[in-house]
C-alpha cells in the first residue's frame, strides 16, 4: 500500500481517470460489429436476430432499474406487454406506421410505469417483488377480459404494419426486421448509456448501495426511483412493440410473468449493473433456447436452473463479473 498521508503527486492522474470513466472504450464497439457481421454470416437467422435485439433492449431496460437502482421486479413484462398491445391495437386500426407504433408504445408503457411505480416503489425487497408481480398479473387479466380489443387468449388478430419510413417492407427473411431492431436497440443503448453516466445515473447506484445514506445526504430517493422506473418502462414498451411489429403477433404471454423471469435470468447470466450484461445474457439465453428446444423443450428449464445454480455459486456477477475478476487478477 502506498503512503496514505501524502497528498500524492498523482492527484491529477487520479482525478483524470475518475472524470473520464464515461468515455467510449474500444470494446464497446464489439456488440455492434458482431451484429453487423452476423447479418452476413447467419443469413437464415435474421428473424431470430431481430428478436434477440429487441430482447437485449428489454434486458437493458431491466438493468437500469435492477442493476443500477437496485429495484427488484418480477413484473417488467407488464411494460413489455403494454407496449406490444398499444402498437398492435393501433396497427389493427389502420395506424401501422412502425415509428409511430414505437412512440405510442413508449408513451403507453411509461404511463403505466409511472402510475404503478408511484404505488409499488414505496416498498422494497420481497413486498416489492410481489407487488410488481401483481401489476403484471392484473394487466394480463385485463387484456384477457378485454377480448373485443385485444383478442383475449386468441391473441391480437389482423395486425398490419406498414413499411419503415414508408420504404422498407417487413420481409419474410427478416432482413428489414434485423436492421430496424438493431437501429432501435442502438438508440436505446445510447439513451441508457447516457443515463447511467450522468449524475442522475450515478445517484441510482447510490440508492442501490445504501439507501439510508442517500436519505442522509439529502437525495430525493423516491422521486429518482420513480423517474428511472418510468424511463425503464418506456424502454421495455418499445422492446415489446418491436417484437410485435417484427412478428406481427401479440398474445397474452407478452404480459406474462414467465417473460419477466426469463429476462431476470438473462440479466443475471450477463451481469447486472454494468450496462453490457443485457448484450451478453440475452443472446446467450435465446440462442441456447433456440438450440435446446430443438432437442427437447421440456428440459430447457431444468438446464437453465442448473446453469443458474452454477452462476450463483461460481460466477457471481455473471459473465461480466467473471471477466472483471480475470482482468483484476491480470493487473496484480
Amino acid at each position: 500500500m502506498s503512503d496514505a498521508t501524502s497528498p500524492g503527486p498523482d492527484r491529477k492522474a487520479q482525478i483524470d481517470a475518475f472524470a473520464r470513466r464515461h468515455r467510449f472504450k474500444w470494446w464497446e464497439a464489439l456488440p455492434w460489429l458482431l451484429a453487423i457481421g452476423a447479418f452476413f454470416i447467419f443469413e437464415p437467422y435474421r428473424a431470430l436476430g431481430a428478436q434477440i435485439f429487441a430482447t437485449v433492449l428489454f434486458a437493458l431496460s431491466l438493468d437500469l432499474i435492477m442493476g443500477y437502482a437496485g429495484i427488484l421486479t418480477l413484473g417488467h413484462s407488464a411494460f413489455f406487454g403494454v407496449g406490444a398491445y398499444v402498437c398492435g391495437v393501433l396497427s389493427v386500426h389502420g395506424m401501422g406506421d412502425p415509428l409511430l407504433g414505437l412512440l405510442a408504445a413508449a408513451l403507453g408503457a411509461a404511463l403505466v410505469g409511472f402510475a404503478s411505480g408511484a404505488i409499488v416503489l414505496r416498498t422494497s425487497g420481497l413486498t416489492l417483488l410481489m407487488q410488481t408481480l401483481v401489476v403484471a398479473a392484473l394487466l394480463q387479466e385485463l387484456a384477457n377480459k378485454a377480448h373485443s380489443i385485444t383478442g383475449g387468449s386468441d391473441g391480437l388478430l389482423g395486425m398490419k404494419i406498414t413499411p419503415v419510413l414508408g420504404v422498407f417492407r417487413f420481409d419474410l427473411f427478416g432482413t428489414t426486421a434485423y436492421v430496424y431492431s438493431l437501429a432501435v436497440l442502438f438508440i436505446g443503448w445510447l439513451v441508457a448509456r447516457n443515463i447511467v453516466e450522468s449524475p442522475f445515473g450515478r445517484s441510482l447506484t447510490g440508492i442501490r448501495e445504501n439507501v439510508n445514506r442517500m436519505h442522509a445526504i439529502g437525495a430525493p430517493v423516491d422521486r429518482r426511483k420513480l423517474i428511472v422506473y418510468t424511463i425503464s418502462a418506456a424502454m421495455a414498451g418499445v422492446a415489446g412493440a418491436l417484437i410485435a411489429q417484427t412478428t406481427s403477433l401479440v398474445g397474452l404471454d407478452s404480459l406474462g410473468i414467465e417473460r419477466s423471469g426469463d429476462l431476470l435470468i438473462m440479466l443475471i447470466i450477463g451481469g447486472p449493473g454494468k450496462l453490457y450484461g443485457a448484450f451478453i445474457g440475452a443472446p446467450l439465453y435465446m440462442i441456447a433456447r433456440d438450440r435446446f428446444s430443438e432437442i427437447n423443450p421440456v428440459y430447457w428449464y431444468f438446464w437453465i436452473g442448473l446453469f443458474m445454480v452454477f452462476i450463483v455459486v461460481f460466477a457471481r456477477g455473471g459473465v461480466l463479473g467473471m471477466i472483471e475478476r480475470w482482468r483484476e487478477r491480470g493487473r496484480r
Binding site: 453516466e197 442522475f200 437525495a219 430525493p220
Partner: peptide
C-alpha cells in the same frame, strides 16, 4: 452532487 443539486441531471456526463 446532491448538495449542489446536479444529481437530477440526466444528460451531461458526471465526469464533465
Amino acid at each position: 452532487s446532491e448538495r449542489e443539486g446536479v444529481a437530477n441531471d440526466l444528460f451531461r456526463p458526471a465526469g464533465a
